[in-house]
Design a protein around this nucleic acid. Structure first.
Lengths: 227, 227
DNA sequence: CGGCATCCATTTTGATACTG
DNA sequence: CAGTATCAAAATGGATGCCG
């Protein structure tokens, strides 16, 4: 029906049979920060029409990677959420992001879209577990009109869309700046210095935040220049 | 020209722009175990025609992920090899393999092809660095008519196609058995017991080999049964 | 808003034939 | 063996229109 298989008895190929089609891993990326509604998914993914989006979501459902649910009150609206198998794809998305941060994040092109959540995942891909030893803190990020929080517990990190219950630190800034942070062009400490970002909350948790992520320096692949 | 971009300023999407097309990551997988010739690549990848293979290789070259070289004497035949950027995709392929081993490796279907190198990479995806502390050993695997060697140095592992210079252990077996090992259906110790595999070399290195890989137990995704 | 169905122009692919 | 040329089939994307 909608399945073009590589027909290889190989773990990599079998995985790509399931998530290798166009848009599929980007859908997983969107859902990694929490359940999303059909329309929100479409708004984030310019170029993906409603028909193909519906088909991809059905595929993810049929394969046990995502499921359709109803958001809790007061929303009560349908949404899609990853299953355990789907959440387990996080290392795949993080590996892709880690590679891209190092080898593929040149200047932003004019026609490229941007969502704060993508930068959140980019940061997460740079998380240094050993820098978070004995750290337990919740950071809330308010970026333009979107909110995310990041919970750090020892060597683990979790990033979810939505406000935190009891954040230790709240950081407010613009998507533009956050984009530059996740692309390694500036960092949070500098942004707080020049007031392009503001932070409130516990000073100690904020201090530790600065060292949690190491954005890799951009490398040149020696790619042929665009024609 | 041959580029359908997601047009997202996102590390994951940018990476998928480069390697997300059909066959591309499987080509990278093939090249991860060393340079390969055009014909060998095509033989490993049933369904990939010569035209598309040539196009994909050109794409990888243009993007600085692979390069065309000439194999050293006595071969002196053209081949393709990953660049540093291409080799750096290994975590991506390993993440895909790791997921597949856990969630997607059911029974082998009759129409599925198999290559020993795929199982080698599957094993590598299960490598447990802490089980290799203070271990320095080279294992040579002879599977059907193919040869690979794996060099373990402390917490690192490297797997290359071809014979080793000074292997500490040489394991000989069939593709069929190796398939079952990498799919977690049996293990090397048992295979040596019932003589479906044989090993020669240093006993201590062989003993440590058994614990180096932990194949994850297969999980059920709850996928809808095939129609 | 959520989601499916349909139509159509364009790309991408798969398979095969062909050339140096 | 390496790779190009060609063509039919499939996937994509974009626009709409429909229904609850």
């Amino acid at each position: 029906m909608d399945q073009r298989s590589y027909n290889q008895f190989c773990a990599t190929a079998r995985t790509l049979d399931l998530v290798g089609e166009r848009w599929t891993l980007l859908l997983v990326r969107e859902l990694l920060t929490g359940p999303k509604r059909f329309g929100d998914l479409q708004n984030s993914l310019r170029g993906l029409g409603t028909g193909l989006l519906a088909a991809r979501l059905k595929h993810l459902e049929r394969e046990g990677l995502a499921e359709k649910t109803t958001l809790p009150a007061p929303a009560r609206t349908p949404a899609y959420r990853l299953t355990a198998a789907g959440r387990d794809l996080e290392p795949v998305v993080m590996a892709l992001a880690g590679w891209g941060l190092k080898w593929a994040m040149g200047q932003r092109r004019e026609d490229e879209t941007f969502q704060p959540g993508w930068a959140m995942l980019g940061l997460k891909a740079c998380f240094e577990p050993q820098a978070a030893q004995r750290l337990h803190a919740i950071y809330e990020f308010r970026i333009d009109d979107e909110v995310f929080y990041t919970r750090v517990d020892d060597g683990t990190i979790e990033t979810v869309q939505g406000p935190a219950q009891h954040p230790d630190v709240v950081i407010s800034t613009t998507g533009e700046l956050f984009r530059d942070i996740a692309a390694g062009r500036t960092n949070l400490a500098r942004a707080l210095d020049d007031h392009t970002a503001t932070a409130t909350g516990k000073a100690e948790a904020l201090r530790r935040l600065f060292g949690l992520f190491r954005v890799p320096p951009a490398q040149d692949r020696g790619a042929a220049p665009a024609a």
